[in-house]
Write a protein that binds this DNA or RNA. Structure first.
Lengths: 222, 222
DNA sequence: TACATATGTAAACGGCATTAACATTGCAAC
DNA sequence: GTTGCAATGTTAATGCCGTTTACATATGTA
């Protein structure tokens, strides 16, 4: 009935992990792409399976050949989000010397900038509180791997400053809360309402440098 | 305990939830109460208008005499949440001398504890990104008023330590990001996965004291 | 060619938010 | 008290949604 928009004919992109599809071309990726766009436009709640199907030019039952349910499709978008966040973080970090405060600040700023650029995707990535679902666990693990980047940076910082490396978590965890809190407040509340003209990058820098200075003093004393 | 007394002036004294006739005694409060319970049990998304009606013993169309739509009912729950958060913060703050670091730490710990106790409600309070809706704006204003408590505490701290009061926001905002980030990570991620045995109170204390120490040093130098 | 499998469709189910038309109640003016 | 109106409920309907079941078709391979 509905003529299918076959972008099957031209496939300039390299297929990711799966070989090309049978009927549609690559419905799985098409659905993820549609879902991503919808979520970006209308928020995680505004997205609907049915609308993604319409965009992909496919019947409402088709997605269930590729995803168990709505959550799994949304999870796939979240997963790609973590990939993107990880890449961005590494890229910014590498612009500064290892072990430097600047590299840690850059990591945090990249984190916050990602949230500002893709607020809906960012919300998604941290909105998986289902727990029992295996897929969500895999997304969470991705998040944990992301945190490891910060852990390593902090470790390098401690070695560079001669602060020892036993309490790395006591430094990294507060730093994570700082940038995560900044990111969340930036997209959920409006900083301008309470602090007009706040620059998120500056906020991250002040908070990060402030905390690292405090910790360094304390560790050096003992 | 019960906010928004605006429309309640000429109500008969119906303290109990009674549904003894065609007209429900206080359906508005009953619906808010049902919504709150459902949200606490099943999360903000698990809540449905229809189920709240079932609990209140009322037809699915009844809520629309009291709320414009689902969002407005959910907003009422969020509003009560901010009242509760504000109360908790003041209560903990007052256990410590004004201007002390301990009072600021206590404020943050109350914030995080509220999130841990009522994760679904807390998510709700910071999930209103609709913007154009007037009701959500009122909820946001409540949040801003909540922030003022922290502002005052920081101001007192600055005066007590002789740090001047011009850059209060530069201190209060990072502190907010610390506790908000801690709260969000605590309920959305699992700290144990990345840092087993983390005590949220300790995390808040370390981060807050660390940051305040760093800022104090910096401000004292200049 | 024939078949198993992967992938798609159509139709149906129940649930949801919301609205429109109608019913009942309570209050206030007469 | 009676009457009328506003507030507050109900029933029924609309149109979405997610998901499942049964069926249809394309594809790679034997």
């Amino acid at each position: 009935m509905i003529p299918r928009p076959q972008h099957n004919e031209q496939k300039p992109k390299v297929s990711d992990q799966k070989k090309a599809g049978y009927h549609h071309g690559d419905l799985k990726e098409a659905l993820i792409s549609a879902a991503k766009q919808l979520i970006q436009d209308k928020g995680p709640e505004g997205f609907s399976m049915a609308e993604a199907c319409r965009i992909a030019g496919v019947s409402p039952a088709a997605p269930y050949r590729h995803f168990a349910d709505r959550d799994e499709l949304v999870g796939a978008v979240a997963s790609q989000g973590f990939d993107s966040l990880t890449d961005r973080g590494k890229e910014e970090r590498d612009k500064h010397p290892p072990g430097s405060v600047a590299s840690i600040v850059a990591l945090g700023q990249a984190y916050v900038k990602f949230a500002a650029d893709e607020p809906a995707i960012f919300r998604l990535m941290f909105a998986s509180h289902k727990g029992e679902d295996a897929f969500h666990d895999s997304v969470k693990q991705q998040g944990d791997r992301c945190f490891n980047i910060l852990l390593k940076a902090v470790n390098a910082f401690q070695e560079a400053k001669g602060l020892g490396t036993t309490k790395t978590l006591d430094i990294a965890l507060p730093l994570w809360t700082i940038v995560h809190g900044t990111a969340c407040l930036l997209i959920d509340r409006d900083f301008d309402a309470v602090a007009p003209g706040t620059d998120p990058d500056e906020l991250v820098r002040i908070a990060t440098e402030g905390f690292l200075a405090g910790i360094s003093t304390k560790l050096a004393k003992v």
